[in-house]
Design a protein around this nucleic acid. Structure first.
Lengths: 206, 206
DNA sequence: CATTTATGTTTACACTGACAACATATATGT
DNA sequence: ACATATATGTTGTCAGTGTAAACATAAATG
C-alpha cells in the first residue's frame, strides 16, 4: 500500500523484489498455484514477510496486475508512435501489441481480465490503468474519424468492438483454443493482421 | 471416467449429484475457492467420496466444463433455428446466446476458456465439445456466403473473427471491465446488436 | 453362495493463507 | 544525544485444503 520512495530498512526494496519474484513464479505456474510461501522462499525471507507489504494474496495479485496494465499502456503508446498519421496502422499495431503481451504473459492476462480481482475501487490503481488503455484506444478511433479514414459513429462502441475482437482473439489463442480448430492460425502476425483487417473493413471509409 | 448407465450402488447417481452441486457452488464462489470438501458436504458424503468418481479436482472441473460446452452447443443451435434462412439474424442470435451463457455462468466461462484445464487430449470430451461449437459457427458463415449475404473469404478466419469479437465482448462485460468505461453498455441486448452489426458490416455484401 | 469389484469412510499428511506474539532496525521528537 | 514510536522481519500456530492409504460395505458376477 505504501511506497516510501526512500530506500527501506532491512532488505533493500523488498516490496519490489516480492513483486518481481511473484511475477516470475506466476508465469511458471498459475494463479491458484502461486504460493506466497514460495515467493517468500525465492526472495529469501520468512514465509510471512510478504504480509508486511501486501494485506493478503489478492493484494499481491492486484499489484502484479497493476504493473502489467502499466506495461500494456506503455507498449501500446510506443506502438502507436511507430505509425504517425496512419490511424489504421496504429490501431493494428496496438492490437498486435495487446496480443503479444497476452501471449507472453498468459497468467498475468488471466489476472488482469479474469474474475480474480474485484473491479470496484478496492485497488484504485487497477481501474485507472485499465481506463487509461481504453481511453487511448478511443483516441485512436477519434483520430481516424477526424482524418476521414474511419466512418463516423459512436466512438466508444467502435473502440469497444475493436477491443473485444483483439481481446477475444488473444485469449482464445493464448488458451490454445484456436490452434486445434484453425490450422491457419499458426503464424500469429498474419493472423492478427487478417482478423483486424476483416473487422476494420466495416469501419473504414471506402 | 465411467458412467455405467445403470443405476449405481449406494447413493443413487453420486457422480451427477456431485457435478450438479459443484456447478452451483462454483458460481457462488470461484474456481480456486471451490472446495471438493464443500461439494462433498453439500451432497452429504464423506470428503473423499468424490475421488471415486473424479481423479482429482481438475478432473471434476473438466466435467463441469464439458457440461457447459454441451449446454452452449444446444442453446446455440436452438438460437440458429429461430431464424431459418436469415444468416445474419442467425449469427447475431448465436452471439447473443454465447454472451448470455457467459453472463449467467461467469465462473463456468472462466473454466471453459481460461487457462485452468489443459487443452490437449487429457479430457477428450472437452475438445470435441469446443470444436463442435466452432464447426457450427463455420457452417453459419458458409451458409451466409452461399446465400450471397456474406462476402467470399476464408471461412475459418471469418468465423474466428466473429468468435473472437463475441468472446471478448462477453468476457469483458462479464468481468465488469466495460461498465465503468462504456456507459452505453448497460443494455446488453442493444450492446450486442450494435457490436455485431459493426463487425458484420465489413463482411456483408452491400 | 463365494468372490470380485465398485463404491464410500476413516485416518493421516503435507501444504497453504493468515493471524498473533515477538524481535529488531530505522525514523522521529524532544 | 537519547528515548520513543514505527516500520519491518521472524517464529509459532491454526484451520482449511487436496489427496493418498487403509479399511469397510454393498452390489455385481461367476
Amino acid at each position: 500500500m505504501k511506497q516510501p520512495a526512500t530506500k527501506p530498512y532491512h532488505h533493500g526494496d523488498l516490496q519490489q523484489e516480492i513483486l518481481s519474484a511473484a511475477r516470475l513464479l506466476l508465469e511458471e505456474t498459475s494463479i491458484s498455484a502461486l504460493s506466497l510461501r514460495a515467493v517468500a522462499k525465492k526472495v529469501g525471507v520468512s514465509h510471512t514477510a510478504p504480509y508486511r507489504h501486501f494485506k493478503d494474496k489478492e493484494s499481491l495479485l492486484a499489484g502484479i496486475a497493476a504493473i502489467s496494465f502499466d506495461e500494456l499502456a506503455v507498449k501500446m503508446s510506443e506502438a502507436v508512435a511507430l505509425h504517425p498519421g496512419d490511424p489504421t496502422a496504429q490501431i493494428k499495431e496496438a492490437g498486435y501489441c495487446y496480443f503479444n503481451l497476452v501471449m507472453a504473459n498468459p497468467q498475468s492476462a488471466q489476472l488482469m481480465f479474469g474474475d480474480f480481482l474485484p473491479c470496484d475501487d478496492t485497488y484504485p490503481g487497477l481501474r485507472e490503468s485499465g481506463d487509461l488503455a481504453f481511453d487511448s484506444l478511443k483516441s485512436l478511433v477519434e483520430y481516424g474519424q477526424s482524418m476521414g479514414e474511419f466512418k463516423r459513429g459512436d466512438i466508444e462502441l467502435m473502440a469497444l468492438t475493436f477491443w473485444s475482437c483483439i481481446h477475444g482473439l488473444s485469449l482464445l489463442v493464448a488458451g490454445r483454443h484456436v490452434e486445434a480448430t484453425v490450422p491457419s492460425a499458426t503464424d500469429h502476425r498474419i493472423l492478427i493482421d487478417t482478423v483486424t483487417t476483416l473487422m476494420l473493413a466495416g469501419m473504414k471509409c471506402s
